[in-house]
Structures are given as C-alpha cells and as structure tokens.
Amino acid sequence: MRRALVVANPVAGRGRGLAAAQAVVAGLERHGVAATLHLTRGRGDGAARVAAPADEDVVVAVGGDGTLREVLAGLPPRDVPIGVVPAGTANVLALDLALPRDPARAVDVILAGRTTALDTGRVNGHLCFLVTGVGLDGEVVRAIDRRRRGPITRWHYAAALVRLLPRYRPARLSVEVDGEAHQPGCVSVLISNSVRYAGIFRLSAERRLDDGRFEVYLFGGRGRAALLGGALRGLLGRLPGGACTLRRARRVRVSADVPVAVQVDGDPGGTTPVEFEVAERRYRVLVP
C-alpha cells in the first residue's frame, strides 16, 4: 500500500470527523503511506472527489453512513478496498462489522488489508448499502431533513417520531418480491443489508453481506399499533416475528394508492413507487 485517499466529513460527530481524519492521515504517513485528505463541503462533494481519476491503493471514509455512501457511489469500477472510520451518528455498517472508532486502531485495520465483500442495491436508480424504508421511517427522515441545521443525533430521530406518530396514518402498500405479489396489508417495508437498523433496532442476525440478496421485512397489521409493535420487537431483537415476516430477494417493488415517503440509508428517497434491485457490483470493505 503506497497511496491513500481519505474522504472525511469534518462536522460529523460534532467535529470528531476532522480530528479523526487528521489522525488517520498522520498514522498512515508514519507507516510510509502517502495520504491525501479531502474534507467534504456539502452533499455530493465526496462522491465527486472519489470519482476523479486517481491511483490510490485504498479509499478511506471518515464520518457517518452518509460519507461512506458517497464514497461507494463515487468509486470508479476499480477493485479498490474501502476503509471505514466511524465518526457519525449511527455508523450502522461499522457497528455490524465491529470497526474501531479509535483512529490508531482504524489505521491498523487499513494496513492489515483484510476485506469482506459488500453487496449494494439500486433504489430508483440510486445506491443503497444499508436499508431502504417505506412508510413511517421515511416520514421521520424527511421531517429531520427539512428541519436540519448542522449535525444530527439519535435524539433528532426520537423527537421527529414523537411529533409524527400521533397524526400518522399508514397507507396500505402493495409489494412484489422477486416478481411474486405479497399478501396485501403491509403498512411498512424495510429492504435491508444490515443488522443494526439506525444503530438502535436489531434485525435478523442471519443476514449475509455478500449473498446477492437483501432481507425484506414486511410489516402487517393495522394502524399505529402495528408500527409500535414492530418497533418494540426491533428494540428487543425479535424481528421477524409477530406481524412482521421476512423474505430474501434480489428485486422488490413497492407501490401505494397515495405517495408514501421513502428513506435510503438515512437520507430522503422521495416517495413510492419504489423499484429496488441488488446491483451486480460488490465492494471490498476493510475489516478487523
């Protein structure tokens, strides 16, 4: 390993992103790796930098899940491993893979060069590597984005949920899984390649990052009570179960009679209909 590009969100974690990135660069350079630091300035900036022609041996994302998503979206079709240094709010993939927050330990992981494959999906043409949610969580993410002023925390999600839930009326969703229509009556859908959803809820531990399929959680029931029941099961690590069933699939289509909010990896993803498909490309992520 001779050259590294470090892409960092300097405001992630209320400023932890900048300090962590500088420590990673210094650590790599102490081991003879020429490291270039790029600090993102807005949405899309990280993807644009990674997409520029370069000859790095590794690209490192320092920040939250949004920073990593930009690195994945911008990375040219070269077999370049990706390092992840969690410094954001949820850091879902880092939790799943037990990636260290400490910059010195993160440098050790990067230099060791051990990788795992990571499947991704395309949601209405956009990249997804964690979770696409249709329903209440989509509304929560949209509400946070509208009010956002700087970094966000888990409390922002909790506050948005408390505001929305009393007046939320879930729509009935029509779902096709690998071309097969699911029984009607879904009020929420998660299409996931993670275990720790939003860093709080626990999904199926049988998930595999590289099996060519995402897990599809179909939440049935009626009204807000069904959503609360599903959320409680998620907090207790008991999904699937109750009114929630699990399928595994390469393609998913979700529609409704009215527009329903969608979130993709914690960012607003517009509204239904949703067309999801597992992408052919796999990435290599550096792991302990």
Rank of each mutant, 00 (worst) to 15 (best):
L218C: 07
E215W: 00
R224D: 01
V216Q: 05
E215Y: 01
G234F: 05
G230L: 03
F219T: 14
A225S: 14
R213A: 08
A231F: 15
G212C: 07
D210K: 02
R213N: 01
G229D: 12
G229T: 12
D210R: 03
D211K: 11
A205G: 13
D210I: 02
Y217E: 09
G220I: 03
G234V: 02
A205D: 14
V216R: 06
D210M: 03
G234Q: 05
A225P: 05
L232T: 13
A231P: 03
G221W: 05
G220L: 06
G212D: 06
A225T: 14
G230C: 10
G234E: 02
L209H: 09
G220F: 05
L228K: 08
L232C: 10
E215R: 04
F214K: 03
R233P: 10
A205V: 09
R222G: 04
A231T: 13
A205L: 14
F214H: 06
R213V: 08
L209M: 09
G221N: 04
L228C: 13
A226S: 15
R213T: 08
R207M: 13
A225L: 15
G221V: 09
F219H: 10
A226G: 13
R213F: 00
R222A: 14
L227K: 07
V216C: 08
L209G: 01
A226W: 11
L218P: 02
R207D: 04
G229F: 07
L232F: 11
R208S: 10
R233I: 08
L209D: 01
D211W: 11
G220W: 06
A205W: 12
L227E: 04
D210P: 01
D210Y: 06
F214V: 01
D211I: 09
G229Y: 07
A226K: 12
D211R: 11
R233L: 14
A231M: 15
F219G: 03
G223R: 06
L218E: 03
Y217F: 15
G223T: 09
A205Q: 12
D211S: 11
F214W: 06
G230V: 02
V216F: 02
G212L: 05
L228A: 15
Y217W: 08
L232K: 13
Y217G: 09
A205R: 15
F219D: 00
G230I: 02
F214P: 01
G229I: 10
G212S: 03
R222D: 12
L227H: 06
G230D: 00
A231R: 07
Y217H: 05
G234A: 04
L218Q: 09
D210W: 03
L227Q: 06
